[in-house]
Amino acid sequence: MATRDNTSLVDLFVARATEAAAKVERIGRAASEVRAAVARATEGLSSLVVADGDYLQSDIFSSLRTIPQVIPKPTDDQLATADAGITEAFAGVARSGSICVAMGPPLRSAASLLMPLHVALLPVERIVLRPRELFEQTGIGAEAMQRNIIFVTGPSATADMGPLVRGVHGPHRLHILVLE
């Protein structure tokens, strides 16, 4: 149900997230299509971690686990050295180009933080216009109030050493797949 407004919201999200140095792709949500997109995004990497989702259909995640590089049940030592983490995004914020990651399910926090690449799956209907909507008492805000959430805007970055450097302690690259 891509209304005219919804389309411009998604366009704004894509533009802002791209400005924030995330890579953004819009794809369909058939499990096979998502799997192919993730495989492309992680091509050449040797170890991947997949965290379960809350909102997307579970066959997407079971299909992702069939990518050969995915570590089925990673130990903490493997989490510390894996190349990429794949998680669902709780929400997207168009005006700031942010995604929100809700903590809780196993591996979600680690997979969105410890690896050099974070691939986030964002259901298109969960994009809102502005950050504060996540704090409203209704709609997506009411859900967010119950969770530990992190607003993620682009990859980790610092200017402490002089020039802007992307990739500090957190992921060096953020790849957002908007699922339509």
């Binding site: 130990t75 030592d77 700031s96 942010s98 926090s109 530990n148 992190i150 607003f151 805007t153 990859p155």
Partner: peptide, 21 residues
């Protein structure tokens, strides 16, 4: 702009703490 990470946490977190071998 929003900085890269802005966390809203109600600790203690449910995630198990990290423990290397």
């Amino acid at each position: 702009k929003l900085t890269s990470y802005i966390s809203f946490l109600r600790p203690p977190l449910d995630d198990p703490p990290f423990a290397l071998t």
